[in-house]
Structure formats: C-alpha cells, structure tokens
Design a protein around this nucleic acid. Structure first.
Lengths: 252, 252
DNA sequence: CGGCCAATTGATTAAACTCAATCTGCGTGG
DNA sequence: CCACGCAGATTGAGTTTAATCAATTGGCCG
C-alpha cells in the first residue's frame, strides 16, 4: 500500500533556467546556444493576478505566451453560462504556439493563480524552428504531448466515472509537475477550487464535492491547504485507468 | 427555416490533387513547387479494410500517415472494455505529424471505412518544414486546427446534453468536409454506426439511438443511407452552441 | 433460409444534477 | 478585538438524465 518516498528522485530534472528550459532539459537535448536563445525569447514578461483573462475566444491572438510561473486554464464559455475547462497550463507550457496561423483564438485563457508570462512574437518561434533544430524537436514534442493530454481529457470526460475522472486528472497533473520539478513526493499543488475541478471534469459542483469526500474517506487522497497527497499510486493508476506513457515517451 | 441551397458554393475549393493538397489549397497559400513536393510525399500508399487498426496505443510509431480517402478514427480502449473515440480523421488529415518525437503512440487509430493512406517518413515532414515555409505554415495551421477540434470535443463531452452533442459533432464534420469539398449541400456522409457515435459522444448506445430518433422526429435532421441532412442550420448551430470560427480562421 | 450486424423498443436502475441551505475560514473595517 | 461579509466547502432532499439489462426488429449477404 505504501510507495517508497524516493520515487521523485529517479528523474529529477535540473533546477536552473526558465520552466520551459527546465522542461526541455529533462529531455536532454538542449545545447548551450539553444538554451541561451530560449531564454532570450523570454525577456519580455508580464505578471497577472488571479482570474485575469489573457486570451479570449474569438479575439485575434497577436502574441504567444510562455508560462514561467503559476497555473493558467484554457476554457470555453457557453451561452448557457456553463464553462468547460479544456486543460491546465503549467509552468513551461506554451500557449498559442501556432498563434500566427490562426485568425482568432478558439478558446479563452486565464490565470488560475498569479502568473508570470513571457510574451513572445510568434515570428520568433518560427525562427526558433529554423535556427535550432534541437529546440524545434523539443517544441514538436510539446505539441505532441499536448495533443495526447487533450486525448486523455476526452477519455476522462467520455468514459470515466466521476471518481475516476478526479484521480485521473490528479495523476496527469502530478506527472506533468514532476517533469518540471514542481511536485513534492506524492504530494502536488492543487490550486483550483472544487468549482474549477467540476468545470474541468464535466461534473456539477455538488457531485464533485461528494466524490472528493468519498475519495478522502476511502483514504485514497489527502487534501491539505491547497495540496493533494496521492496515497496509493499503483492502486490509483489502476482504478482510474491512467496511462503514464502518454505523458512521457520522447525519442531523439 | 430553409437555408439557400447555394451555401456550399461560397468557398468551393479546387478539386485537383490529393485531399491534403485540396485542403491547403483552400487556404490559398501553395506554390506550384510546394504542391509538387506535397504530392511527391504521398507516393507510397496502402489501402486498408474497414476496422483495420494502423496505429496502436503504446506501440512505437515509425511513420506518419496522410489520409487520402475514407474516414479513420483515433480512439482509446480501456481495460474495462469501454472505448472512447477521440476524433475522426477525414481525407487530408495527417496522423502522427510529430511521430518521430514520441517514443510510442498515445492512441490507437483504425479505418472506419475503407481507406487509402500515404505512408510518410517523419523525416520528410521535417524537410517539408524547412524547404517550403508556406507548406510549413499550412501544417502548423492543421496542427492548430486539430488542437481546436480537440478542445471542442472536450466541450461536447463535458458540458453539452446528449442531443446537443450529436448536433455539435455533425456540424463539426459538415464544416470539415466542406473544406475538402466532400459535403453535399446540407447533407454529409456519416459512415459511423450508432455504436461509434455513442463511443464518440460519451453516451450509451441505447441513449444515442433514442436521442437520434428524437432529433429526427423533431425534423432537425434526416437520416438516409449513411448520410445525414441538417435541416435547419442556424437553429442547429444555436441549439448546440457550435462555433464555426474554431474550424476556420487562417491568417497568412 | 439462416445468420449476423445494426437499429429499435421496453422496463428498471443508477449516476449525476438541481435547488436550497448551512458551515467554515479568513480578511477587513469599526 | 470583534462583527460582518464573502468565497469556498459541505450537506440534505428531490428530480432528471442517462445507463443497464433484455428482447425484438430490419436489412443484407452467402
């Protein structure tokens, strides 16, 4: 039932540079030059308070963003007033990688916690593709990974029960945070409210609350001050049908 | 209640070349050279019968595929035996655009109808990015579009009622088929079974059947020999909260 | 004529939603 | 220091949507 506490040491990534650099470094393919260019891309930054919307569905998207710290959400608002959170953006994630090829945004994005964003000219990302093939490979990998995260979100919403959805999402976040060195053993930050969680998992607030309570009572998770502790990894992975491979797997 | 029958003529794309060429041509950014290279990529083709799986979750993905004709599905199988169809691939769609950067596939793919697939070395796609910036832009646009399709799928599954999900999906498919010149006025091919539809929309087969019957009785859609006719576009768009902009919007 | 796959229908159960309070922790102004 | 207000969490009760179980029907092909 207990996992060794050393699990987080196996792949511990380096702790220098921006979150994006840390993430790509974890793939072990960045040259010194590339790191330098990657950092130089991120000189213009802005800070946003909780709740601030920085991408709006239907509006032109003039720049791309690299999330340096804090969490953001990508979401859609329906005319009925309902909201669907499509995915979470964590430090090191890029929003609008292909911004310059779209006329308007197809989703909205907002700060879930206070965030620091690097504001990037989409043109410079194209340069990056041309100048640093290794980094281009890294960005392609990010793209493929995001694709796979969205696929998993569809599975959660379409074919998992409420309690499975919660666990499955927590496991995804744990693995993603681990890659950037922001998890803490079997504990992870969970800055979203239960309302956010409900809007992510396609559930009502009340039902989310009850299923969370059930998971806590069953000892599967422990919730404490904005953090969640995953108490029995293997069992949680099995019961939620989570597949860690979807978030890993980089080759050359 | 009736729409003008001329709706499909407004953006009618050219009808020459492979489906992918037709799709990118609709964006009006391909040079003659680029078209030639794009076609030369697609010389090695294979044909698959209905049901044949050509990508398997967890297996290495050695090549990319360009769908030339027929429909395919990307899906996940759960250990409980349930299936979630993540998205449909239509002619001109690329599967595994970033295949060479992932260790293994994060989904399975299979032929929904008989299909013809071009088998492409991922390396050649990278060449394409380097040699033909205009095509690279086209592929980036495809990538962004697919991202937006997956976002819409999350909205469908998470926050729409069963009847809305059905309509929303049909509208998506109609718009996507239109871009490659494979729709027919307000009618579209719908080669999937009700079981496939259920697995796409996160519903049970029985419930899908009943909601379809309801939509037919209400006169919203007409189903005839593998085709669906959308009887009142504007009303369908409104009732399903569908946003056509998510599938359009290309800017240089 | 079977056999099979897909579609349909009936009956019952279960998961999840809605409505409506209430509770709790926390920060702020008096 | 305390009352107040507020956001987030929790609980109760009743309702609805959708799932499950179980046949049955319709069309097509060998």
């Amino acid at each position: 039932m207990n996992m060794p506490e050393t699990i987080e040491k196996e792949f511990a990534p380096p702790v220098t540079g921006s979150a994006l650099t840390r993430k790509l470094n974890a793939l072990r393919l960045l040259s010194g030059d590339a790191v330098e260019f990657l950092e130089s891309l991120q000189t213009r930054t802005i800070e946003l308070d909780v709740g601030k919307e920085f991408v709006t569905d239907g509006e032109p998207m003039k720049t791309s963003f690299i999330l340096q710290s804090g969490w953001a959400i990508r979401f859609a608002l329906l005319s009925s007033g309902r909201r669907q959170i499509i995915s979470y953006a964590l430090p090191g994630d890029i929003l609008g990688l292909h911004a310059d090829f779209r006329r308007t945004a197809s989703y909205s994005a907002a700060a879930l916690t206070p965030v620091r964003l690097a504001v990037v000219e989409p043109k410079r990302l194209v340069d990056l593709y041309r100048l640093y093939p290794a980094v281009a490979a890294g960005l392609s990998w990010c793209s493929a990974r995001e694709h796979s995260i969205l696929g998993d979100q569809a599975v959660r919403l379409g074919r998992l029960a409420a309690d499975q959805r919660i666990i499955h999402l927590l496991l995804e976040l744990w693995h993603r945070l681990k890659l950037i060195g922001e998890n803490d053993g079997r504990r992870l930050d969970a800055p979203m409210t239960q309302n956010d969680l409900a809007d992510t998992l396609g559930l009502s607030l009340v039902h989310t609350n009850r299923q969370l309570a059930k998971l806590r009572r069953a000892g599967h998770i422990t919730v404490e001050r904005g953090q969640v502790r995953l108490n029995d990894f293997d069992q949680l992975i099995e019961m939620s049908e989570f597949n860690p491979d979807h978030l890993q797997g980089f080759s050359l």
